[in-house]
Design a binder for these strands. Structure first.
Lengths: 127, 127
DNA sequence: ATTGCTAATAGGAACTATTACTGTTAAAAA
DNA sequence: TTTTTAACAGTAATAGTTCCTATTAGCAAT
């Protein structure tokens, strides 16, 4: 049934190979090193499929660009407003007050995005 | 110096008039009811200016579209993945564990986006 | 091996939200 | 009034993403 093509494998390996929370474009460049004729559409589709299957996660940053991450365990992200870099915020637990409030709103929560922004250690010291 | 034009006022009033967390497009439609010849570029520029001045806040949803909000006090948002609607999650305090972790990363935090998603009470009961 | 079926592909067009550019208008300053 | 300049309308351009069409490649049953 499900066919794990060379393209899909290359996409998954590209995302897994880095901690830089890559964008579709970065993955495209990376996959082209292995499969030079790969299509950008194929990269997008495979990223979407891998995300739907739960093999990777994806989140949209404050400028509307989607980033992907092979670490599917829940964690927070920080994005530098200067250089755009996204890094992990480790070991943080989110309080559960929200769950109560969301229950009261009669919603069915299936995910959450927690994204901090500011200046990273490098950009902070430049300006 | 700063000129508070009719266009800017209409933009601010449009955002303030609703709790629906409108997009630039919604604001554009609303402002055109008052100033039919207003330009979409003007709406975008004024939204950006009002945001920079702190009169409104803006946040990007999971599909990369920016939403605006005249309630500048910190609060959380929930977006329905079915109908796209954004609603407030009231009375939730965010724990401070993240601050420690972010300090250890030597970052200078200036904001955060907390966005839950799932099905709202209406869409939940349809499917 | 050949056929038929379907998933997956390459390539590119199309779409959407947003930004940038180019005169023009109108408010404030001189 | 004249000058200056912020803000404007209208439009072109951009970036990220999705959609479309013809083609290719893997699998199952003949």
């Amino acid at each position: 049934m499900k066919r794990f093509s060379a393209q899909r494998q290359a996409v998954l390996e590209a995302v897994s190979s880095t901690k830089c929370h890559p964008t579709a474009d970065w993955v495209y460049d990376e996959v082209r090193k292995i499969i030079p004729k790969v299509s950008l559409g194929t990269v997008y589709r495979n990223l979407a499929d891998l995300k739907a299957e739960g093999n990777i996660i994806g989140f949209t940053d404050s400028s509307g660009v989607e980033h992907f991450d092979a670490t599917t365990l829940p964690h927070l992200h920080f994005q530098c407003t200067e250089c755009g870099k996204v890094i992990d915020v480790p070991g943080v637990f989110v309080n559960t007050d929200a769950n109560e409030a969301l229950n009261q709103l009669d919603t069915e929560v299936c995910g959450a995005l927690f994204l901090y922004f500011g200046k990273c250690s490098e950009c902070k010291n430049i300006n």
